[in-house]
Design a binder for these strands. Structure first.
Length: 494
RNA sequence: GGGCCCGUAGCUCAGUGGUAGAGCAGUGGACUUUUAAUCCAUCGGUCCUCGGUUCGAAUCCGAGCGGGCCUACCA
């Protein structure tokens, strides 16, 4: 009866009755006698039909019951497995007593059924069941068959229900898997090797973000969850690998939003003897490859925006794009207070202690980035906030760095890697000094990394891409929580 | 952190001051080609929580919890 507890009690009673049947109905058998998936069964029938076989092939399928239509001494049951749906036809005159076990069947149960296929009057390919059994009893009712499940919170907290009820959820999960596969294809085709580096680290470096802290009991010391992959991958360049990439989960102890999950998958790659211009060509090739592999097209629809990846991607510079959208030439304003004032004049709130770089970043984030819908490279960032990048030879105030934007957000970040151990140490010290003065998101000196650099690292171009954002790009989903199967949620309270 | 919106049956939703409802699912019955099966009957509620206003609160007010969107933060 209809409270949740009563529904569950009914099903528990059916489970118990199932256990007591001696006609071969264990409620949870370990072994299933399946010969075909739903899709394979259909294919087998159609092949046999095409050959003009007189007798349809015998098949055994297994899956979850998603609908049942009971008509006295006959019944139709819809079964769904990973390959699709197939209809079962059960009749009392064929099945005898085992037909009566339908009394113990509920929507959501898993069933195994063997028999031969035929076409119904309406033409639907259907399995005429000769034997069947319940192979996993469900104790709770499935979401409603017609409207499915729409409550956002339930969809995220109980993603399995979302996947059962909503084809779109299944499609996004498959596309995410396809993105990862396409990324690996591209890198393997370009002679990169895939590596794995530590998640638990003594220093969380390679990015400016607040890390999660954890504790190692045997060593009795705190460790950090990584915030990027960078510093370990560069050690591998020192070690002699010319092309490496990693698809790794990183963790940033920051806010949760439509575009930020505390843990996310980062793609980073490093190529020795390349610079950031080479990386720009590669990232364009990579993203096009992924889009084509996953969607079959370079034209992506995103709400009211149509993205055209086939057109040559726009290229600009940090100085130019900022001037274009704000009228500010930052090279004319070396003073942090002056920049903060200019930002406020344009309605961009900045903290009164914001550094020069932070104020510039606020301007970019508020007035420039949201306008960059089509894929756009921004080259040559101020060296000030690019401590791991090489400076440009012809202008040491600039870093040999670009970021790639699309749909108003950062998709990729790349630079010619700093490989001068002396300069790198100085840059890290500068950052440490900033942290001492209150900025808690800076690059700390990592002596173990600097030691590696002193053994010599080849010139290299490095790249980082937020995989979720790439998945959002190719699926058209505006929220990161739709492309992460189990997004971070608050503890359920109330 | 700020603003707006949402929370009613297992699911999808109505109900906006006067006896808590519908469809699906469930239960009982009819039905041997249905496919959102159909028909008859029926069970089912902490109306998110706590407090307040009122003769009377799902409804109005306040606080809290959870969620969504926007915003802020975020290499």
């Amino acid at each position: 009866m209809p409270t949740e507890d009563e529904l569950r009690a009914q099903r528990l009673a059916k489970r118990a009755r199932l256990m007591q049947l001696d006609a071969g109905f264990p409620a949870y058998p370990a072994r299933v006698e399946r010969t075909h998936t739903a899709a394979a069964a259909v294919a087998a029938f159609e092949a046999s039909e095409a050959q003009g076989d007189a007798v349809a092939p015998a098949v055994a399928v297994a899956g979850r019951v998603t609908a049942q239509r009971l008509m006295g001494r006959a019944a139709f049951v819809d079964l769904r497995d990973g390959s699709g749906r197939i209809q079962l036809s059960l009749r009392r005159d064929n099945l005898g007593e085992s037909f009566d076990a339908l009394d113990l069947l509920d929507l959501g149960d898993f069933v195994e059924a063997g028999g031969t296929l035929f076409r119904t009057r309406t033409g639907e390919l259907t399995l005429a069941v000769e034997r069947w059994r319940i192979i996993a009893k469900a104790l709770r009712p499935l979401p409603e068959k017609w409207h499915g499940i729409t409550d956002t919170e339930t969809r995220y907290r109980q993603r399995y229900l979302d996947l059962i009820a909503n084809e779109r959820a299944r499609e996004i999960a498959r596309k995410r898997a396809a993105v990862l596969a396409a990324i690996r294809d591209w890198y393997h085709a370009h002679d990169y090797i895939e590596v794995e580096t530590p998640v638990l680290q003594e220093h969380a470096g390679g990015a400016a973000a607040r890390p999660f802290v954890t504790h190692h009991h045997a060593l009795d010391r705190d460790l950090y969850l990584r915030i990027s992959l960078e510093l370990h991958l560069k050690r591998l360049l020192v070690g002699g690998f010319d092309r490496v990439f990693e698809l790794g989960r990183v963790f940033r102890n920051e806010g949760i939003s439509r575009r930020h999950n505390p843990e996310f998958t980062l793609l980073e790659s490093y190529e020795a003897y390349a610079d950031y211009e080479d990386v720009a060509r590669n990232v364009e090739s990579l993203v096009k490859h992924v889009a084509l592999a996953v969607t079959g097209s370079l034209q992506l629809v995103h709400g009211e925006h149509a993205l055209d990846l086939a057109q040559p991607w726009a290229r600009t510079t940090y100085r130019e794009v900022l001037r274009e959208h704000t009228g500010i030439d930052y090279t004319q304003h070396a003073d942090a207070a002056r920049l903060r004032a200019l930002a406020r004049e344009r309605g961009v709130p900045v903290d009164e202690h914001a550094s020069w770089g932070t104020a510039l970043d606020a301007l970019m984030s508020a007035l420039v980035e949201p306008k960059l819908i089509q894929p756009t490279f921004i080259f040559d960032y101020p060296a000030e906030f690019s401590p791991l990048a090489k400076r440009k030879a012809d202008d040491p105030a600039l870093a040999a760095r670009f970021e790639l934007f699309a749909l108003g957000y950062e998709l990729a970040n790349a630079y010619s890697e700093q490989n001068d151990p002396v300069e790198q140490r100085e840059r890290m010290r500068d950052q440490a000094a900033k942290q001492a003065s209150g900025d808690d998101e800076t690059e700390l000196a990592d002596e173990d990394f600097l030691l590696a650099l002193e053994y010599g690292m080849p010139p290299a171009g490095g790249l980082g891409i937020g995989v979720e954002r790439l998945v959002m790009l190719v699926t058209g989903e505006p929220s990161i929580r739709e492309v992460v199967l189990f997004p971070a949620m608050r503890e359920r309270g109330g």
